[in-house]
Design a protein around this nucleic acid. Structure first.
Length: 119
DNA sequence: ACATTGACTCGCG
DNA sequence: GCGCGAGCCAATG
């Protein structure tokens, strides 16, 4: 049973917009969906969505770039696999947002100009 | 109806 | 880096 709640739909829409090879935080997704400070709702939507939803859930991380799961969990490993498949590097339990963040620091582009090709 | 629980985030010490 | 509190609020028991 798919939720018809408009907030949930807005959040799913934003998640689908995250480009391959990029990641975004729960909070950023909420903000882009017009729901500032509703990061937890994003997590709830993803959990409720499940595998059948076909959402790129692996591109969603915590605000500091860490994955949201325990390092020994199967979900964590699956997320790392999916990210690696599209070129996103996970160091330890985190991703460098300067390189792979949807909205990354402009200075990072000076350090790796090739990142511009991903837009 | 009340308390707890989160795929969260941010500021402060 | 780490813990705490606050803000957030639907789902769960």
């Amino acid at each position: 049973m798919k939720s018809a709640h408009p907030d949930h739909l807005a959040i799913r829409r934003v998640i689908l917009l995250i480009p391959r090879g990029r990641v975004a935080s729960y909070g950023e997704i909420a903000a882009r969906a017009g729901l500032p400070r509703r990061a937890r709702l994003v997590g709830r939507v993803l959990r409720d969505a499940g595998a059948a939803a076909k959402l790129p859930w692996h591109r969603v991380l915590c605000a500091d770039g860490r994955l949201a799961f325990l390092r020994d969990s199967e979900t964590f490993l699956e997320q790392v696999r999916r990210l690696a498949r599209e070129g996103v590097v996970v160091s330890g339990n985190r991703v460098d947002l300067l390189q792979f963040g949807w909205r990354r620091n402009l200075d990072a582009e000076l350090w790796s100009p090739s990142a511009l090709d991903m837009e």
